[in-house]
Nucleic acid binder design. Structure first.
Lengths: 206, 206
DNA sequence: CTAGACTTCAAACGATTGTTTGAAACGCGA
DNA sequence: TCGCGTTTCAAACAATCGTTTGAAGTCTAG
């Protein structure tokens, strides 16, 4: 790492990798495709990141550090203000992801990558994500436990597991509903978030 | 195709491919790994299936033909008997997938492969699945529309999209809940199906 | 202006990818 | 037993994979 800002090459690689991993998967996107899309030299990946695996982890770290911070921040605000409800806690989890998606041109690029990670069952990637960001899910689970005191622990965990599935799948835009022509990406995603919160809250209450 | 039964090589390849695609993805599992696991010659894949892409499609066809048939059969039974409710229709969708999972030693191998297909956003695989098995989802959507007559069409589609996400994710066993030691795979999966139906029905009603 | 750390580059490394080849082995009807 | 369609096999194809190399280029502190 030198002195001045080093955004250029590193960030270009991360951006291109994110899009190609979302589109073709981690194994399906080659470093040559990534570096070509980023318009940098092939060797730049191993120079800046060491290996393809490290690049993959860095793609997650770049987004998840801030995403986790924002989620926990919103959750803490709710607890402090005494405004915690199923709907507001779900909103604290979803809205930061929504904003992240809307930061980028294509929409939910990173969320698609994140959903891919769930499919990697025995990979070291799941260990990496669980080790580094598992505490976020734990904090939210504790908040839901407080809001649903009548639910047994096992019952609660089942419902949370299903809820995470619904959220992951929907935020990754894996479904069949297409954005209506003329409707902005923002409007489409916000409508989805609204339905998602409504649906999941009802499922958790059941 | 010769005279006698030809289960051996073809079926061994399909079984090994299914497991490796579930574990490493379509791009991540090579034909050499597949043929080694199936204990057949490398060239057998191209001889029996023509290409890797055709093999992938055949992995789906082998399971989805019967799965779709059973799902529609159960749905038709419900309609004929007048027993259709949110819970029973969800059961008609989930139980056949559950039985398919329990047919095999490892549990939900094929369901994991199926969930991988959802992540392949622009691939020809999604087109193949949509073209050949889209009518199943359509029939179920129609059944739900009849059961939720007060819901607007757009509202209904949003909820169904979210429901499919929850079902896909859960049936693929992507969640964090582990089977309890001492608990059978069957008992674990049936418990999941019960929670899944309860959660999703509540979300659809909302 | 020079020394030296940092970054980029073209080129190549061996390994692995999907696919093709032609010969060998097989299985059954005639 | 012969002959012939079917299947298996080892070997090789060009292409692509992740990674490494050493030289060329860029930049700033001194």
């Amino acid at each position: 790492m030198p002195h001045g800002t080093q955004f250029s090459t590193r960030q270009r690689i991360l951006g291109a990798a994110e899009e190609l991993f979302a589109e073709r998967g981690f194994a399906g996107a080659s470093l040559r495709q990534v570096t070509a899309a980023a318009k940098v030299n092939l060797a730049a990946v191993n120079y800046h990141f060491g290996s393809k695996n490290n690049l993959i982890e860095e793609v997650f770290r770049r987004r998840l550090d801030e995403l986790s911070r924002r989620r926990l921040e919103r959750l803490a605000e709710l607890d402090a203000a005494g405004h915690a409800s199923l709907e507001t806690v779900l909103d604290a989890f979803i809205t930061p992801a929504l904003e992240l998606s809307l930061d980028r041109k294509g929409g939910s690029v990173f969320m698609r990558v994140l959903a891919r990670a769930f499919a990697e069952h025995n990979s070291s990637l799941r260990t990496f994500l669980s080790d580094n960001y598992g505490h976020v899910l734990k904090d939210f689970a504790a908040a839901f436990a407080r809001l649903l005191p009548d639910l047994g622990k096992e019952e609660l965990y089942w419902r949370l597991d299903i809820a995470v599935g619904a959220l992951t799948y929907a935020m990754a835009d894996f479904g069949m509903i297409q954005r209506r022509s003329g409707e902005s990406e923002r409007a489409h995603r916000e409508k989805m978030a609204k339905h998602l919160i409504h649906f999941t809250a009802a499922g958790l209450r059941a």
